[in-house]
């Protein structure tokens, strides 16, 4: 019977990786591709009743972990063997009591450790973890999650941000910059913005640009009549989300940040009188020789207040209403 197009496609899909792997193994030194990542896998062992495990590991008998208590419909992989769902068949270990006779994700190579988790967590958002930056850095699931712990939170070994900054030391320092998101204050968490399991683009990430930021800062979503194009392009052109010295998470303080793309008003070149004056509208102030520079080159957004965009026109006709001052 001839293969259907669908079957042929499946066969190709299955053969493709094998061909690529075969080609890779032709490269010098790549024979290590096939290193034995899980020495336990090759051994012949049978599944036993969980009670046999708990006879010795009695500390887990009272554990409220969800991982000991799964129904078939809760997992795509139909893993319902209790302890042995992750640790593999335990008969050899039960007989010998030898730790080498059972898989231990806590001490195993991360590739092996993660595979135990991903056999179930492959149909949800965690499914792409093997391709993530964390996986590539040999961070395994159990590096952050306490699998035997009670089902509280996400089984994290410690709370955020402490867990994250224990490795990401540079971000720990960023949280202590004068302007920062309220992460160290506990008002938000690292995972409000970051997906520690992520890698390939998700459906959500394909929405409009800057949607991650706009999911909280929705007042800047517009779309506005008068736009400021870098706001549309990328929030991080002007803002450093982990923290900054300048106010409002700006990568540099005004006016320098603005002067990278714009020039200074000519008013800043006009010297001032030294002394007090009163305007025709009755407002008094003190002027100095460099007063116009101080006025026009201290903080651009004192006048260009609506820097993220506005529907209201600015005052000057020659500026076409687009100066974002209103």
């Amino acid at each position: 019977m001839p293969a259907t197009p669908r079957k042929r496609a499946r066969a190709c899909a299955r053969a493709g990786p094998r061909i690529l792997a075969a080609l890779l193994t032709l490269l010098p030194g790549v024979s290590a591709l096939a290193y034995e990542v899980d020495s336990f896998e090759a051994r012949a062992a049978a599944y036993v009743d969980d009670a046999a495990c708990l006879e010795c590991h009695e500390e887990y008998a009272a554990s409220t972990t969800v991982h000991r208590d799964l129904e078939e419909f809760e997992t795509a992989a139909v893993v319902t063997r209790g302890c042995q769902s992750c640790h593999g068949p335990g008969s050899l270990h039960v007989e010998s009591n030898d730790p080498d006779d059972i898989r231990n994700p806590a001490t195993a190579d991360p590739v092996v450790a993660n595979r135990a988790c991903l056999q179930c967590h492959r149909a949800d958002d965690v499914g792409a973890f093997e391709m993530s930056l964390h996986a590539a850095a040999d961070v395994s699931c159990v590096s952050c999650h306490d699998i035997h712990g009670p089902q509280r939170g996400a089984l994290l070994r410690s709370s955020q941000p402490d867990l994250c900054v224990s490795c990401h030391q540079d971000q720990r320092a960023s949280m202590y910059l004068p302007s920062h998101h309220p992460v160290r204050e506990g008002r938000m968490t690292c995972t409000d913005c970051h997906d520690p399991h992520g890698s390939t683009p998700s459906a959500a990430s394909a929405g409009r640009p800057n949607d991650l930021c706009l999911s909280c800062h929705a007042r800047h979503a517009g779309p506005f009549v008068f736009e400021h194009s870098p706001v549309i392009e990328d929030c991080t052109i002007c803002h450093a989300p982990h923290g900054s010295v300048a106010n409002s998470l700006l990568v540099q303080n005004e006016p320098f940040l603005c002067l990278q793309c714009h020039q200074a008003h000519f008013h800043a070149t006009i010297p001032g009188i030294d002394g007090e004056f009163t305007s025709l509208d009755g407002y008094s102030a003190v002027s100095t020789h460099d007063a116009s520079k101080r006025g026009f080159l201290t903080k651009c957004t004192q006048c260009h207040t609506e820097i993220h965009g506005s529907d209201l026109p600015s005052q000057s006709i020659s500026g076409q209403g687009a100066a974002l001052t209103r």
């Binding site: 509208d281 003190v286 201290t298 004192q302």
Partner: peptide, 24 residues
């Protein structure tokens, strides 16, 4: 940082002569 009146020149006594542009 606001408070400026433009100087358009110097009077006979060496004092500043203020112009029309102001910032308050």
């Amino acid at each position: 940082n606001f408070g400026w009146r433009e100087r358009v020149g110097v009077d006979s006594l060496g004092g500043d002569v203020g112009g029309g542009k102001m910032l308050t």
